[in-house]
Structures are given as structure tokens and as C-alpha cells.
């Protein structure tokens, strides 16, 4: 059992991009999927408890070793960290696409009140956004959606990890969302 866990740890470490449980299963096909998931969770907890320089993170549907976010200052001393790779316009466009996907350009334009052509092109170039197909209306406009790379870059497990539009609206109104993060008692996990 310990050996299986070590193998999982090793292949995640060796993998350049987030490794899915299915991929791990391809290596360890005799081990049950649920067992792999359990061992993975074990590993995640171990790294969390250790409070070391890096953690095992669930991102873009896979597992990935990444540095702790509060240590970015030190890493930026070693190598140049990106300040911001997206302009505000691009960030807004990306936000609209992330929440409204699949979405056509005219809808993005309408929400932002301004032509999104240039930020959209930038997002496509950076592979944060992809073409998802064409909408079945006159003119067959292109529909856009976010990519796996978007999840990777923004450290998201999946899209559901984004705050909902309702929660964002509450933030705007200055009213705290009804359910704030209540401390979860330990027995709730059982």
C-alpha cells in the first residue's frame, strides 16, 4: 500500500502538467480508482500538514505539485515573476466567457459595452479561450469557451470553483453572502 502511494507520488512529481486520476490508473491498472483517489487525498493531506514549500494541488481536473502561493516573493527573487499577463480588458472578457460559455462575441460586446475583438484575440493566442463551435442562429456566429489551460493558470479545480454570479452580485451590494465560511467541524466529514 505504501508502495502504491509512493508510485502515485512519483508519477505526479514527474509529470509536467496536472495528472488526472485516470492517467494514474493507466499506470496502476490493477488498483481500484477509488483506492487511487483515497491515496491521492492522503498525499494532499500529508503535504498540507507538512507546511513545506510546495503542496499537491487539484487543478484542471488533475494533480500537480505547485509552490505555496505565499512564497511568491521569494521565487520572484530567483526568477522573473509575471506581473500581470492580462490587461483589464482581457480579464473582463475572460470573466464574461468563463461565466457565460459557450458565448458568442456579440454577447461579450453587449455586456462590456465595447468591442471585444482585440482582447478576445489575445486570449485565443494565449490559449486561455477556445472556439467551441458555431451557434445555430443566422450567421452561425462562433461560440467561445475557456480552456484547460485557463483552469491551470488560474489554479482552478474546475469551473464550479469560481464564485457564482449571485455571490459576486452580493459582494457588489456590500451585503455579505448569507453563508459565509463557517468553520467546518471535524465530525461533518464522517
Amino acid at each position: 500500500m505504501e508502495e502504491t502511494k509512493a508510485i502515485i507520488e512519483a508519477i505526479i512529481f514527474a509529470s509536467e502538467s496536472p495528472l488526472t486520476v485516470d492517467k494514474i490508473r493507466e499506470v496502476l491498472h490493477e488498483v481500484e480508482k477509488s483506492e487511487i483517489a483515497r491515496l491521492v487525498q492522503d498525499l494532499i493531506n500529508e503535504y498540507d500538514e507538512r507546511r513545506g514549500g510546495f503542496v499537491l494541488q487539484e487543478v484542471a481536473g488533475g494533480l500537480h505539485f505547485r509552490t505555496r502561493s505565499d512564497l511568491s516573493f521569494w521565487i520572484s527573487k530567483l526568477m522573473k515573476a509575471k506581473q500581470s499577463m492580462l490587461t483589464n480588458a482581457a480579464m473582463e472578457t475572460l470573466a464574461v466567457i468563463a461565466y457565460k460559455q459557450p458565448v458568442v462575441k456579440s454577447e461579450i460586446d453587449r455586456i462590456r459595452g465595447v468591442d471585444a475583438g482585440s482582447p478576445l484575440k489575445g486570449l485565443l493566442d494565449k490559449k486561455l479561450v477556445r472556439i467551441m463551435g458555431r451557434k445555430d442562429v443566422p450567421g452561425k456566429p462562433i461560440m467561445y469557451g475557456t480552456t484547460k489551460r485557463f483552469l491551470e493558470i488560474f489554479s482552478l479545480k474546475d469551473l464550479s470553483e469560481l464564485p457564482t454570479l449571485k455571490e459576486l452580485k452580493d459582494l457588489q451590494d456590500g451585503t455579505e453572502p448569507l453563508v459565509t465560511e463557517l468553520p467546518i467541524s471535524d465530525d461533518s466529514e464522517i
Partner: peptide, 11 residues
């Protein structure tokens, strides 16, 4: 959010 290559880094 913690952005890859801005706030968090991979190997």
C-alpha cells in the same frame, strides 16, 4: 486568484 507563474510556480 493565485496565478501560475505570478503567485505560484511549478517545477
Amino acid at each position: 486568484r493565485p496565478l501560475l507563474e505570478r503567485d505560484i510556480f511549478k517545477r
